[in-house]
Design a protein around this nucleic acid. Sequence first.
DNA 1: CTGGGGAGGGGGCCC
DNA 2: TGGGCCCCCTCCCCA
Length: 528
Amino acid sequence: MANCMVFHTQIASIMEVLANAAVAEICKLVDDDYAVFRLEITQSQKENRALRRKLLELKVARERAERTMRERVLATRPSIKILDRYRGIARGEGHLTGGHRNFVKPSGPNTLRDDQPITVDEGNGASTQHIIVIESAEAAGPGVKQERSEGEEDTLHIRDIQTGLAGAPPVATDEPDTTPAQPKTRRSVTEVSGTLNAVLKSETDTETLTVTHRLLHTGSDQMSDPERLGLGRLGCTPAPASEYLLYGNPSPRTVHSHPDSGGASETGNDPSCSYTSETLGLEAQTDLSRRDWNRCSRSVYSEGCLYKAGEGMAVDEVTVKVEGDIPPTWNADSLLGDGHSQGRYFLDYRESLETNPNVATHYPSHTLRDRDPLSTSMGPSDSHGSVLFDQVLNSNDRTRAQDQRGEATSSNSKDKRFLCMFCNKGFSCPQKVEIHQRVHTGEKPYSCTQCHMRFTQAGNLKRHQRVHTGEKPYGCTQCHMRFAQAGHLKMHLKVHTGERPFTCTHCGKRFSERSYLRIHQQKKHSTL
DNA sequence: CTGGGGAGGGGGCCC
DNA sequence: TGGGCCCCCTCCCCA
């Protein structure tokens, strides 16, 4: 019995030892596995961080590519017009996130016929206005960045607008921009938004672009009531929402309007923000034209004084000092290439950068106005594509001539504190800026119901209506001639008076019109 | 020279 | 009274 007890005790001891050994082994295994697991977790976390950094870099690179493209586009202004885009408006070809807004021009003291409603397409039902108004530094203090916006349905995002000193740090991203300065090479960057985090692609997603393009043609020409849409008489959205870029001192200011997104590249309401900044292919380019130009242009203007001459322009970490009035460098061949026949114009932004000095408008790229007037469908003005392009090219000359006459850039005028974000031109009121910016956007909200011509101003449409009505209210008192435009009558009167106020400085030949003189000098004296 | 459109400014009206 | 809005005028360009 005693031996049995001893045996049991020994057995118990052995069992205990074995149990301890087993526990120790198990613990060791667990510890090892845990260590491995922890290591894997650590590695995964490192990978995640690396991927995040890479993603951020891609975002920044994309933003910069957009900005570069944007600024290059801006650099060619004021002659820039995305040709034929307005036909998109005509068809209500809005942004993917929105429809369009057509309405009948309200009746008023005009000569329009009752059966000729003036349709005004607004591209989107939202009346969001994002206005950048540059105000005095005294009011805002140095470096003040003020953001205001309203209307979330189709928001306009000014990604990052820098004014003043070149090289101001872009703050469009949520995180500090640690990415080294991107080269100015044009990279093919495609963003497919629609989720909170934009999906970045290294290559242009042609399919996406095509889909986007197709969807942009789903609009119609239906009309609606402007009043119902809460628009003004002219159909101009009364700029309810504003983003003010305080202005007043040369210190760099940056304005970002991201009312609905925390980051510049994380907007979620932009189902397709695709473009190729390098190749500027047809689809991509049209998309760029449709979206960004219109989104940022219509509602964006600055209020304040114009910038001091001589300041540089911050263009993607590159300060561009503009010297002289460089003519635009649009590639007409590209413009009038294959895309032309389709009503698609794409522009070849050459390397040269001509811009208004001091305007450092970074490319507004996300969730901007839902106004996509560019259309790929044939419209009445397709046949005038080259004409439009010529107008684009010549608008610079026109502006230059106006500048010489002191008509255009009365930038020193205190009354003209509302600045165009594209060309920095000052205007007395936001509406004029909005109208003016149609020069840059190509937006033509006023459409003729009889010939589908579209116009940037209601008055021009009204004048155009005389083509259809045959109305010629201006009659010559010297003869039977009648004219639809007062200017034509005035010009005609010179036939009777013999007035030739424009004299060629080379040969002394006199002309009744400045344009005649210019043509003469071009032909005879090879000068402008 | 005519005709059409682009674009800016002035001024009146309204709030 | 001042500012916003809008019509109209005007200049200009181009075909």
